[in-house]
């Protein structure tokens, strides 16, 4: 079964499955313990190392299990965890398990341009105003028209001394927005990289003076980024390309890492994201097999009632026109051949003396004959005429 086409072969919207996009990706931490080695942490000893790779490695595959930061003795206590996802994903949730008391404040950021710029997805703090200058989400008024980064309570300490950050990406989004129909929401959930900024360590009982608890270290594992490989509804899976980059297995005449554009010959209408109801497949230009390239013309598309805007380029086999659907000057349609036949257009072959020009009727192939000349190519004198010696008037009335 092909998720991108129905039983009849018609295209339909399709999406890759929900995965942990961070799994196996290289996690980067701005601070990791073990250099220089201490009694508890030695980066050069696998049995005592706590590298950032433990954040995104399969559960239970390593021992120890948790990444750990260096001991932080004085402010600022910021430590950044970054996971490049390799390509754009549409996020559903982000979670992070803390192996020690979770921080009192942290920020969750995303990048849509492979780490060049960052935007917040959410903040988590026991003191939203103090840490991030914004009101707690619960105390905030009605949601705005679009998604925004809200400030949620910091993760609670669990009985085992750890804690869990669990964030649903649509938590910052007003209810009722639908991913299929809301470009704003599509943009909100799209990320190529995820970053967690651990801002302030927890202090038992309060969130005030953290320096009294120093040195402090953060420790975490299982950074999960739940999402779907972003293919804009035109692929049901993502694969590694020849260069080892994750890319959509595009269908519907689309191409690109996210199926974000139409393939070169598939430009009869503008690219569109597929929805659950409509595949919006890119359509091949109609060139009757006489052109390999085409371009999109918006004006023609509008004039056609938004049905067809492709213009064939470099029509071959002596054809011409927007769809290579008629014969170029000096050629006419052979009625015995299909329009898609390589020899659908025959040369006019107008007689150099008997014809008044070289261009024949494109339908009948009739050349324009001089007076008294007849025949499809004007190569004979008409009845009642005979050949003269003058090439200007090749046929004269028979005396």
């Amino acid at each position: 079964a092909d998720p991108c086409h129905d039983e009849g072969g018609a295209p339909r919207g399709c999406v890759p499955g929900l995965v942990n996009a961070a799994l196996g990706r290289e996690a980067l931490a701005s601070s990791t313990c073990g250099r220089p080695a201490t009694r508890a942490c030695d980066a050069s000893d696998p049995r005592r190392a706590h590298p950032a790779a433990l954040l995104t490695s399969p559960a239970g595959s390593a021992s120890p299990l948790c990444w750990r930061s260096d001991a932080l003795t004085q402010a600022p206590f910021n430590v950044t965890l970054t996971v490049p996802l390799g390509k754009a994903f549409e996020l559903v949730f982000v979670s992070l398990r803390f192996c020690s008391a979770p921080p009192a404040s942290l920020a969750l950021l995303k990048s849509q341009d492979h780490g060049r710029s960052w935007a917040p997805l959410g903040f988590f703090s026991s003191h939203c105003g103090l840490d991030y200058g914004r009101p707690p989400a619960a105390a905030r008024g009605p949601a705005g028209p679009g998604p925004e980064a809200l400030c949620f309570p910091a993760p609670q300490v669990q009985p085992d001394g750890g804690g869990l950050l669990a964030f649903s990406v649509q938590d910052g989004s007003p209810a009722g927005l639908d991913l299929d129909s809301s470009p704003v929401l599509q943009d909100w959930v799209t990320a190529t990289d995820i970053r967690v900024v651990l801002t302030r360590p927890a202090r038992p009982g309060d969130a005030g003076d953290v320096e009294s608890t120093a040195p402090y270290s953060y420790s975490a594992t299982e950074l999960q980024v739940g999402g779907r490989c972003k293919c804009n509804g035109h692929a049901s899976r993502c694969l590694l390309d020849a260069q080892g980059r994750l890319t959509c297995d595009c269908r519907h005449g689309t191409e690109g890492p996210d199926c974000g554009r139409c393939k070169p010959f598939y430009c009869d209408r503008p690219w569109q994201r597929a929805t659950a109801r409509e595949a919006h497949a890119c359509l091949a230009c109609s060139c009757n097999g006489h052109a390999r390239r085409c371009r999109f013309n918006m004006e023609l598309y509008r004039l056609s009632g938004r049905r067809s805007g492709g213009v064939c380029l470099n029509c071959r086999h002596n054809t011409a026109g927007r769809h290579c659907h008629y014969c170029r000057e000096g050629f006419y349609r052979d009625p015995g051949r299909a329009l898609s036949d390589r020899r659908a257009c025959r040369a006019c072959d107008c007689h150099p003396v008997g014809a008044a020009g070289k261009t024949c009727n494109q339908t009948t192939g009739q050349c324009p004959c001089k007076d008294g000349v007849a025949g499809l190519t004007c190569n004979r004198c008409a009845p009642g005429f005979q050949q003269s010696r003058s090439p200007v008037a090749p046929c004269v009335k028979t005396p």
């Binding site: 007689h351 150099p352 003396v353 008997g354 000349v373 007849a374 025949g375 190569n379 004979r380 004198c381 008409a382 009845p383 005429f385 050949q387 010696r389 003058s390 090439p391 200007v392 090749p394 046929c395």
Partner: peptide, 23 residues
């Protein structure tokens, strides 16, 4: 009646050298 095709050899190109088709 099928007329014979024009015979190029019969034309006199003396005054129309510039119109003469290349063979």
């Amino acid at each position: 009646e099928v007329m014979p095709t024009l015979d190029m050899a019969l034309f006199d190109w003396t005054d129309y050298e510039d119109l003469k088709p290349e063979v």
